[in-house]
Design a protein around this nucleic acid. Structure first.
Lengths: 338, 338
DNA sequence: CCGGCCACTGCAAACGTTTGCACGCGCACA
DNA sequence: TGTGCGCGTGCAAACGTTTGCAGTGGCCGG
């Protein structure tokens, strides 16, 4: 089948020098005389030599690779984050190994262990669902790790993190609805994101409390827990909306934009006008938020930036610099759904 | 800093056997007596041994990794394809190395060469833009490669491909509009995708011709060539629509769903009702096609499937099986925009 | 003319595995 | 008791690099 690629040793034989000379010549070492260097580089080009990164990695004990484990690649939110990661990894000379974990802690742990076997230099985990019960297994992996918007609660002390302020974002959203004069505001939540859902719900609750409004559980609806694909979010929002409507909501704050889109669809079904009959606010600011009717008021997460920041933090970690966890504050973007 | 991970040799020393025995024991070789095997496996577990894939790869001369180069990760279309690739790669024990090329041939070639350095077992290229001028450099990379929806024309004979039938899809779309009674149909095209744009436009043209309608260049508008991000597609559709409107179009077939969304937005701006005043058809069937108003009639590309098929083909190639290029036929899905 | 230094090159070990081959031992059979 | 055979284990080479150290030769200065 395919013949073996040409190696440094092959070139050494052809040029009648030692492998070490070839190695040095190719990396432009001043130890090698200029003419020999030129001759070898020329020869290498002619025979189409391509260095073998695997051998290099073995000897250097670093792979110039980072691992990224993500819940779902097809999710538009994470796709943007991944994009940011790639953007920051490339100039640093790092390649990205991708794994999907489908919101399942065991799969996530397996993915991390696989990356460790492959000796990645660092690991990025998006939307992590692994909790304390994995601390033991986690301790065995040597690579520094950074979590992006983790769903796990107790901060493992081995891990660093970059996250958006769910609580603050939610308070902004609800405060805005209150400003608009709404008194009965509903919340549509996701049971499959334990931490961020809780934080957003707390922000929702506290914003109401700060305005002196009573908490009314009838105005809160949450999908059941358990692994889901992001596509189900739209259906979730659609299914949940009637409940808060029945409780007399005039506005609804949704866990994310896909829930909000579901809410929009549910409104259309029952002939409700948005924002006239009901105001809708999302979270994330996906691209599609601008394209639905009406365009969605939402809390923007700087998705690409999130990925870049996480990568930067990981890079610092790789340089043995001391780093600090990052919390970024999301911002309200108002459109026509309110 | 971080201490070295435990190696087979370490275990050998502790167990007072040779490295080869440890290696065999860990891979459950029947050559090793059952009790020694058990003892070593136990010991390995205790000390937290993790095999070093890099060393393995070097010796086995295969990395169990494939490379995927893609134009843009943030693009919802390619995100789905990537998802499909991951889905098929995982069970085969292959990891995925990701690279972005931003619709730039030179960057794409560089990405491929980088993957080759890393000695990936195979390469998948999505939306390839490299043409014949790269044949020389391409020939040096040894890994088998599969193109997904390539934009390059002349089929390089070294490369295999999986693609959707752009021409057939376009004909379906336009035939459907004709069925609906439209006589003046416009086309909104993308200059940055040479091949698929041309094929779709040809399908458009031939469908009209088959119905005995004249070709009218005023009904065709195409964005300028050159690298773009997918987000610009919406703006493109929005900017192009007025032209075909001015030419008296009652329906418009768009290069893809994002163009169609742009067209929808343009209609809204000028108070045109869809589909009453103008029918709109897209291409791709992105998730958001269902969420816009009105929901978009479009040509569905089986995106996840495309990724899986490409991966399957690559797997076959890796097994030295003979394979055949694949063309899949897209299907019309009718919604409320027509 | 000799000692020493510098510029250049090669040797060999190391990175962590896998694997063909040889070896030693115990046992059965002749 | 000798031959042969299996079973279990170890040796060493190989995968393709990098790099500390040890040469070798030439040239310069004393």
């Amino acid at each position: 089948m395919r013949q073996r690629a040409v190696s440094i040793e092959d070139i050494a034989r052809m040029a009648e020098v030692s492998p070490s000379t070839v190695s040095r010549a190719l990396r432009d070492s001043p130890l090698i005389s200029a003419d020999v260097r030129a001759r070898i580089q020329q020869l290498a080009r002619e025979v189409g030599y391509t260095p073998n990164s695997i051998a290099r990695s073995l000897q250097a004990r670093r792979s110039n690779t980072i691992g990224l484990v993500v819940t779902s690649i097809a999710d538009p939110f994470w796709a943007d984050v991944l994009h940011g990661v790639e953007l920051a990894a490339r100039p640093a000379g790092l390649s990205v190994l991708l794994s999907a974990a489908h919101r399942d802690p065991e799969q996530e742990m397996l993915a991390i262990e696989l990356l460790h076997q492959r000796r990645v230099d660092g690991i990025l985990v998006a939307d992590s669902h692994i909790g304390g019960e994995y601390a033991g297994r986690l301790a065995r992996v040597q690579a520094p790790a950074v979590l992006i918007n983790s769903q796990a609660d107790g901060q493992h002390d081995l891990l660093h993190s970059v996250a958006v302020d769910d609580y603050g974002g939610a308070r902004q959203a609800v405060a805005y609805l209150l400003d608009l004069g709404h008194q009965r505001i509903g919340y549509l939540g996701s049971g499959s994101r334990p931490r961020s859902n809780r934080r957003r719900r707390e922000g929702f609750r506290d914003a109401l409390a700060a305005a002196g409004l009573p908490a009314d559980d009838a105005l809160v609806a949450v999908t059941p827990a358990g692994p889901t694909e992001s596509e189900e979010d739209v259906a979730g929002g659609q299914a949940l909306l009637p409940r808060v409507l029945a409780a007399g909501a005039t506005a609804v704050f949704c866990y994310n934009d896909l829930f909000a889109v579901g809410a929009l669809l549910a409104c259309r079904e029952r002939g409700l006008a948005v924002p006239a009959d009901l105001s809708v606010v999302g979270f994330d600011d996906l691209h599609l938020a601008r394209y639905v009717t009406p365009p969605l008021t939402t809390i923007r997460q700087p998705k690409v930036d999130l990925g870049q920041q996480a990568m930067q933090l990981l890079l610092a970690l790789l340089n043995n610099e001391s780093v600090q966890d990052l919390v970024v504050t999301p911002s309200l973007v108002t459109r026509a759904s309110t």
